[in-house]
Every structure is written in C-alpha cells, then in structure tokens.
Simulated assay, not measured.
Amino acid sequence: MDWDDLRIFLAVARADSLSGASRRLAIDASTVGRRIARLEQVLGAKLFVKTPQGYALAPEGERLLPHAEAAEAALSDAREALSGPGDLTGQIRIGAPDGCANYLLPQICARLCEDHPGLEIQIVALPRVFNLSRREADMAIAVSQPQAGRLVVQRLTDYQLHLAGHEDYLRRHPPILTREDLRGHRMIGYIPDMIFDRELDYLTETGADWAQLTSNSVSVQMQAVRTGAGLGIVHDFAIPFCPGVRRVLTDAISLTRSFWLIRHADDRRSQRMNRIADALAQGIRAEVARLQGLITLEGPSQERA
C-alpha cells in the first residue's frame, strides 16, 4: 500500500469532497479521484460513498481511517526523530474564533515564523466550533471547554470584555452613568440564532432586550462600534486596534471569558505538535496580557462611567 495514496485518502475523508482535498493537497481533483479509485482497487474495498453533500466514508473507509492516521503520526514521529529538536518545519493549520484570529494570532504567528523560517502557518478564522476529528485544523482555540471527543484540552488564559462605543458616538448621546441610561441606545451584537457557543451570548449582560445591528462575526461587530454605529460588548484586547473606542459602565458590566487550546488526542505523541502548542499558548497569554495592559494604562480617561 502506497503512503501517498493513504495521504490522499485522509485528505478526502477530512474534506468530504474531491475538490476540498485537491485544494489542500495542491493537486487537481481528477487526480485525487483516480488515486482514490486505485487505492480502492488495491484494497478490494469501497472506501467512500458519493452523496449530495460530497464523499462520505463507507464502512470500510471508517475501518481504514484510524490506521491511516496512525501511519501519518508514525511518519511525523520519524521526521522528528531524524531532524532533532531544531527548527520547527512543515505546515500547521490553526482554527480560531475570529476575534482571536484577527487581534491575537497574526502577531503571535509572525513571531513564530521569524523564529522558525521553515514553518508554514495557516490561520482559519471561523465563527463556529472546529471538528478536529475531521482535521479541519491541526489544533483549535475555543471559548469553552469541549465535553466530548478524543481531545487534549488546555486552558490558555482568561480575557476581559466590556461595553464600549466610539467617542464620536458617545459625544452625540447623553452620558451613560447607569444601566438605565442604556435605554434608547443602539446596541450591536451577535445574530441570536447564529451564536455557536453559549459563552458568546453577551447581550443579557447589558440588560438590553435586543440588538438592532447584528453580525455572526465579532470583528464586524467591533468595526460597527468603531464607526460610531452604537454600543457593543468588545474584547479589551481588541480596543488598542480601534482608536477612539472607549469603554463605558466598566464597574457595572464586565465579562470574563477563557481561551482553550484543543488538540487531537493522537497528537500527544508528537514532539513537534507539543512544541507548537507550547509556543502558541505562551504567545496568547503574553499578547492578551500586553494588550489588556494598554487599556489599564490609559486609566479613567478611557472610560465613561
């Protein structure tokens, strides 16, 4: 059995389609299809079932999957054993909610790339939970701890969020001194039926019944706040990127959430993955502390409460 055929099998199993696998492997979809057909012929088994949604694993494919993943892990271990504990190399895909992906990961990953020129980092920013079993990402950052699955879960750091508005918006409206003063203000938040994690349900913290301007993206919400469209709950670590955005009612409305690093259980044996996870964890802790420290240093003039 050819390892390259197994590699293509894994890509199709994780992407659920020939086209998705071809993009990840950088080969054309017709070649992917031919290689899968060849592997099925060699094994004498049907590995996939074509459905309207794409390619689903057949029972034989389900049985092959853990063995293919074990071969993948063994090959990675062999590369590490030969290369030793030097520079990190190869591709790593990190999934994250878009707030973390926009305001934290770019500078953290830039430093990693500087330290390890042979490392290729892909940041996938999606407002939903990642499926590591399908290898949508090699590791993922989440805002709540998963309760099921063969996963390694590590708490990274706490972070703070506050109600905020742009100084132009605040100048145009009466002072906000209590929660009652929020009545009549335009609120910005998540689309209710697209909140993919209960930790993102911020609106109840403000006492507001609804938000007039909503998005499934926290970055879009922050840009709406920055343009003076209203008030919204924002990450403290994002405020330094948005000049003019000021926190309000910091004593009355203050949220604390956590970031979690999630990895597939099989990756615990990989020294390379452990090193990347450690570097990512240290970077996120340091960057959250640095950016939130910038808000603290600005003191009361940053707030209107």
Results as ranks from 00 to 15, higher is better:
residue 25 L to K: 00
residue 82 L to E: 15
residue 80 E to T: 01
residue 94 I to C: 00
residue 77 D to C: 14
residue 43 L to D: 03
residue 79 R to L: 08
residue 36 I to V: 14
residue 90 G to N: 02
residue 87 D to E: 15
residue 67 H to T: 15
residue 33 G to Y: 06
residue 94 I to W: 10
residue 60 E to K: 15
residue 17 S to V: 04
residue 43 L to A: 00
residue 28 D to M: 07
residue 29 A to N: 12
residue 53 Q to V: 02
residue 67 H to G: 15
residue 70 A to H: 03
residue 43 L to Y: 01
residue 93 R to K: 07
residue 49 V to A: 11
residue 86 G to I: 05
residue 82 L to W: 15
residue 40 E to V: 01
residue 93 R to E: 04
residue 52 P to C: 14
residue 26 A to Y: 10
residue 76 S to Y: 08
residue 63 R to A: 03
residue 54 G to E: 13
residue 90 G to M: 05
residue 58 A to W: 02
residue 24 R to A: 12
residue 92 I to L: 07
residue 30 S to L: 05
residue 69 E to L: 05
residue 77 D to H: 11
residue 37 A to Q: 14
residue 70 A to M: 09
residue 65 L to I: 00
residue 30 S to K: 07
residue 44 G to M: 06
residue 74 A to S: 12
residue 66 P to A: 11
residue 36 I to F: 10
residue 20 G to F: 10
residue 30 S to V: 05
residue 79 R to P: 01
residue 55 Y to W: 13
residue 44 G to K: 08
residue 18 L to K: 05
residue 83 S to Y: 14
residue 54 G to C: 09
residue 52 P to K: 07
residue 26 A to I: 11
residue 35 R to N: 03
residue 76 S to A: 13
residue 47 L to T: 01
residue 27 I to D: 03
residue 17 S to W: 04
residue 75 L to Q: 12
residue 52 P to W: 15
residue 73 A to M: 14
residue 27 I to Y: 01
residue 55 Y to K: 11
residue 76 S to M: 03
residue 43 L to P: 00
residue 29 A to P: 10
residue 64 L to C: 02
residue 44 G to A: 05
residue 84 G to Q: 02
residue 88 L to P: 06
residue 51 T to C: 12
residue 46 K to V: 09
residue 44 G to Y: 08
residue 35 R to A: 03
residue 45 A to D: 00
residue 79 R to C: 08
residue 61 G to I: 06
residue 60 E to A: 15
residue 25 L to A: 03
residue 77 D to I: 12
residue 79 R to Q: 11
residue 37 A to V: 07
residue 23 R to A: 14
residue 87 D to Y: 15
residue 27 I to E: 13
residue 79 R to S: 13
residue 54 G to Q: 10
residue 49 V to F: 11
residue 18 L to I: 06
residue 30 S to P: 02
residue 52 P to F: 14
residue 23 R to G: 13
residue 32 V to G: 09
residue 82 L to P: 14
residue 60 E to G: 14
residue 23 R to S: 12
residue 74 A to C: 06
residue 83 S to C: 13
residue 71 A to G: 02
residue 77 D to W: 10
residue 41 Q to F: 03
residue 33 G to E: 09
residue 72 E to Q: 08
residue 64 L to G: 01
residue 72 E to R: 03
residue 70 A to C: 06
residue 45 A to F: 06
residue 42 V to H: 12
residue 71 A to D: 04
residue 71 A to M: 13
residue 76 S to E: 15
residue 37 A to P: 11
residue 32 V to E: 00
residue 34 R to G: 00
residue 24 R to E: 13
residue 54 G to K: 11
residue 31 T to E: 09
residue 93 R to W: 07
residue 64 L to M: 03
residue 21 A to I: 12
residue 35 R to L: 00
residue 74 A to W: 08
residue 31 T to P: 09
residue 69 E to M: 05
residue 79 R to D: 13
residue 47 L to N: 02
residue 58 A to F: 05
residue 80 E to I: 05
